[in-house]
Design a protein around this nucleic acid. Structure first.
Length: 192
DNA sequence: CTAACGATAATCT
DNA sequence: GATTATCGTTAGC
């Protein structure tokens, strides 16, 4: 995907990311998964957004060029993978919450420690970072280039099939429906 | 099946 | 000192 894809309003990008392929060429081999669940974090009137209270050391990547990866550490254990969206310096991003495992299943299982069925391999923001070997090193990486990038998968999700729901794990702005997935998908992080 | 909780650290108040 | 864009385990139906 080129920069123009990411430099649109963040809600549109969050919806169009559904069905795209997140790819990572790791030292162990190629791993990928279809994006099945996203959440948008906006700069205006969104208290749940990390960038809401201005630019800090942690969230500085959110203010970089659209199309870059914003990876942060949370709960002392996990990473979350986001894509910077909208205009540069606005501080908006889309969180990738879940994938349908595609390539490199054995590598992903190894990274996650085996014993996981497919629908529990990458069904959560922390889980997919472990499975795809995404870490703080990738914060600020330009997603147009290898080893970490997003590709067209030829899977078009119709807007009428996209479900909007409250975002997960936040205590503020619960009224905003900025979590997106499609009905009948087996790989999302949580069923409603 | 669902609900509660601890791990563990950066960031904020 | 409290909170957090989480997950796996454990306890309780």
């Amino acid at each position: 995907m080129d920069t123009g894809f990411y430099a649109r309003d963040s809600v549109s990008v969050a919806k169009s990311l559904l069905g795209k392929l997140l790819c990572h060429e790791t030292e162990d081999g190629f791993v990928s998964g279809i994006i099945v669940e996203t959440e948008a974090y906006l700069s205006e009137n969104d208290l749940a957004c990390h960038a809401n209270r201005g630019k800090t050391k942690r969230n500085s990547t959110m203010f970089a060029e659209p199309g870059k990866a914003y990876v942060y550490f949370i709960y002392g254990i996990y990473y979350c993978f986001n894509v910077v969206t909208g205009e540069k310096d606005k501080g908006e991003a889309v969180l990738v919450r879940a994938l349908e495992p595609q390539d490199g299943l054995e590598i992903m299982k190894k990274n996650r420690g085996y014993e996981h069925p497919l629908n529990n391999l990458t069904s959560g923001p922390g889980k997919l970072c472990i499975a795809l070997a995404i870490s703080k090193n990738h914060d600020g990486h330009d997603l147009r280039f290898k080893p970490l990038y997003i590709a067209e998968q030829g899977l078009l999700i119709q807007d009428k099939n996209i479900i909007s729901a409250p975002r997960i794990g936040i205590s503020t702005a619960r009224d905003k429906l900025l979590r997106f997935y499609w009905s009948g998908n087996e790989y999302i992080s949580r069923r409603n």
